[in-house]
Design a protein around this nucleic acid. Sequence first.
DNA 1: ATACTAAACGGACTACGGTCCGGATGTTAT
DNA 2: ATAACATCCGGACCGTAGTCCGTTTAGTAT
Lengths: 207, 207
Amino acid sequence: MFLVSLIPIRPGSASGGGPPERRDAARNRELLLAAARELIDECGADGLTMDKLAERAGVGKGTVFRRFGSRAGLMMTLLSDAEAEFQGRFMFGPPPLGPGAPPLDRLIAFGAGRIGYVLEYGDLARAADHSLYNRFEVPAVVLWHRHIEYLLRAAGFDADPWLMAMSLSATLDPERLLHAVRVHGVSPERLEETWRELVTRVVGSAE
Amino acid sequence: MFLVSLIPIRPGSASGGGPPERRDAARNRELLLAAARELIDECGADGLTMDKLAERAGVGKGTVFRRFGSRAGLMMTLLSDAEAEFQGRFMFGPPPLGPGAPPLDRLIAFGAGRIGYVLEYGDLARAADHSLYNRFEVPAVVLWHRHIEYLLRAAGFDADPWLMAMSLSATLDPERLLHAVRVHGVSPERLEETWRELVTRVVGSAE
DNA sequence: ATACTAAACGGACTACGGTCCGGATGTTAT
DNA sequence: ATAACATCCGGACCGTAGTCCGTTTAGTAT
C-alpha cells in the first residue's frame, strides 16, 4: 500500500533510494521525537520552541533542523502516523470513505474525516500547516487535493475540477476550522453539515 | 457613508471618540507611511522589515509598533484607501456589485472584485492578511463575511449561512489565490469562473 | 512664561526560526 | 587495524517581529 508522506524528507530507514541512516542520526531522531511529545504534553504544540526541543533532547539546534527541516516539518513528522492512517482509510478503506461508494458520498466522508482529524490534533495540525513557503506543495496536501479533484471528476463535475478542488480544500484549512470551533463555538456537526451541503450542491448540479 | 476600517486602531484625525492626535505623532505617521511606500517600491512588500522602515523614516522602532500595532497592521493601513473604495463599491455602488442586482449576481461580482483586489495588491494583500492571531476578527474581514452571509440569505440559502459564508470566504484567501496564479499559472478569469460556478451552485439549489 | 501631565519617543532587549561551518563520529574499503 | 571519507553534530550566529521602560515633548492650566 503506497502512502504519501506528510514530510518531504526521508521518514526513517524505509522509503528506498538513498543510503541508510547513520545510527547516531537515528538515535537523535528518536530522542527528538520523544522530547517533542513531552514538550507538547507540557506546553502544548504552540509552546514548543526549537530551542527548548534541542535542549530537552540534549542535542544541538542544528541537529533539530537537519532532521526536520523546519518547525512545520517537525509537526508533520509527529502527525505522520495519523496521516498515514487517514490516507489508508480514504484510499483503500471501507466505503463510504474508501472506494466503492458513490463519489459524492466519498466526498462528504472525506470532509468529515478531515474535520475530525483537524479537531483531534488541533494546534498540532495547525502548526503542521504553517509552512509559509510551500504550504501547498507538501506531498500529503497535494494528495488530498488530487483526491478531491478525482472525486469531483468521478461525480461528473467537468468545469475546472482542479481549481474547484483547491477551493474546496480551502474550506478545510485547519486554522479556519479551529477558529470557528474555538472562537465561535461552532460544533463539529455544523462543520460537517456545511461541508456536506457545499459539496452536494457543487456536485449535484453537475448531472 | 459608513466604511469599516481594515485596521482596528485610529486611522488618523477622523473617526470620533478619543482625543485628537498629537502633532508629532501625526507627522511620524506620515513619515512612516511615505517611507513604507518607498521601501515597498524598492524591495517589494515582502522585503519591508520593521527595522528598515524605522530607520528610513528616522524614528525609533517602538514608534512604528505604537502606530500600527504589527507588521500586518501597517500593511492594512497602506491598503485602507483601496479597501474603503472597494467597500464603497460593494455596499453603495452600482449593480451588479452594489445593491439593485439579484443576490447571486452580487455574490459573483463580489468574488470577482475581491479576486481583482488581491491580484492587484499581491504581496501587500497577503502580508495584510497575515495577522496570525486575530486574522478573522479584523473589522473589514468581518464585514466581507457578513456581506456574503447577507447575500446568501437574500438568495434564499437557509442552511447555516454564517458558516457557509465562512467557507466561501476561505476560497478568496489571498495566499491561496496568489499561489494559484503565481505557481500554477492560473488566470484571473479561471479564478473568477470557478468562484462563479461555486456560488451559483451553492445558491442555485436553494430555490 | 512656567509648571504640569499625559502622550509619544527611541532603541536596547527578548524570543524565536533558521543558517553555517569547523570539528567529531560512524561507516567502509583495504 | 587503519585510513579515508561521507555524514552528522553542536552551538554560535543572524534576521526579524514584537516588548519595555527611562526620557523627551506636545498640549494645557495657571
